[in-house]
Computed example of a mutant assay.
Amino acid sequence: MSLGRNLQFLRKMHDGMTQEELAEKMAVSRQTISKWELDTACPEMDKLIELCQIFSCTLDQLIREDMAASGEMYSHMRIEDVEQFRYFRYAVISADPEGDAIQHIKRWAAACGVEEPELIGWDFPHVSQEQINVYHMHGYAAAWILPPDFDLPGKRAEIIVQNRQRYAALTVKDPFKAPFSVIPNAYKTLMSYMQMNGLQLKYEKEVLTCFERVYSQNGIEYMDVYIAVK
């Protein structure tokens, strides 16, 4: 654990706050912040408490936990305006809901002449404890982002319009190396980013509260995670 590493991480999470900006808030010099982050000096208790107030964390988290460890898995934390799009979705509850939902959507797209559809997905929460505990089932919804002016020929399906919406977002590299820890922690990290920057979750029927988008670049798989904000 390292107070210095934690401070660097918290500045990054706090909308990329610079050492100069933090120094101004703390009424100290930039050199003092630099010393704290290099672990060559330690803030006095009143300054530690002030840091906790600025970054919305506990004293225990600041000085005992390695807050930066989880943050290194994620990059490009940002606020992004996602333009309006239309989508067709399919939700399923099964032992492999993500795979089942995605394959279903891909079959629909192929039947419409689209071999590489743009997909997003999110957890589907309407699952009973019996389905989870006894049958090891979970829920997932996959959606096909429809190209502009594209309709589902001959298909009776609900096409949903998502209006322009503001999202907090981050990027995860190699999300499926340890998906059951990396992906949930991505959401936790993003929620912390929102809290530190005074952003509130937007929960409305007409808005996708959260979703994931997977893609590849130069042979490496990435996932963008989005959470709607007011």
Rank of each mutant, 00 (worst) to 15 (best):
V161L: 15
E24Q: 12
Q162V: 11
A157C: 13
G16R: 02
K202G: 10
Q165A: 10
E44R: 13
C210W: 00
P148C: 10
D46K: 04
M45L: 11
G154R: 11
E80H: 06
I49R: 01
P184C: 13
R156G: 13
M26V: 04
A168Y: 10
L10P: 05
F211Q: 03
M223Q: 12
A157V: 14
K25M: 14
A91P: 08
P148A: 13
A168G: 13
G113S: 12
A101G: 07
K106I: 15
G16L: 02
K35A: 07
E72G: 00
I160R: 05
V182L: 14
L3I: 14
A95I: 01
L190I: 02
S216H: 00
E20G: 05
I33K: 09
I227P: 03
G219L: 06
D224K: 05
G198A: 12
G113D: 14
V172T: 15
F150P: 12
R89L: 03
M137A: 12
L208G: 02
T189C: 14
N6I: 07
D81V: 10
E80L: 06
R89T: 02
F85S: 06
R213I: 01
Y215D: 07
Y226L: 07
A186Q: 09
E50V: 01
L190T: 11
A69G: 00
I220A: 10
S70V: 08
D174W: 04
A168H: 04
S75L: 02
C112W: 10
H126A: 12
I159D: 10
I227L: 11
E204S: 12
Y135H: 15
F85I: 03
A95D: 06
S216C: 06
D81R: 08
M194P: 08
R86L: 04
A228I: 01
N197E: 07
E83T: 08
G139M: 06
K205S: 07
I54N: 03
A68L: 01
P153V: 13
K155D: 14
I54P: 00
Y87P: 02
I183K: 08
P43T: 01
L208W: 02
D39A: 07
A142L: 05
M26C: 07
Q19K: 09
K47L: 05
L59A: 00
A101L: 12
T209E: 04
P148H: 09
A169G: 12
A157E: 15
T171A: 13
L152F: 09
R164Y: 06
G139E: 05
I93F: 02
L48Q: 04
V182T: 15
W36E: 09
I120N: 02
A41H: 05
D96I: 01
H76M: 04
Q53E: 14
T32G: 01
I183Q: 11
V214C: 08
K155M: 14
Q61V: 00
T18F: 01
I132C: 08
K35L: 09
Y203F: 09
M223G: 02
V161W: 03
I159H: 10
F180R: 12
G71R: 02
E116V: 15
L62H: 00
V114K: 08
Q162M: 14
D174P: 08
L199I: 12
C210K: 02
I183R: 11
L199E: 04
A68E: 03
K25I: 06
E130M: 09
F9K: 03
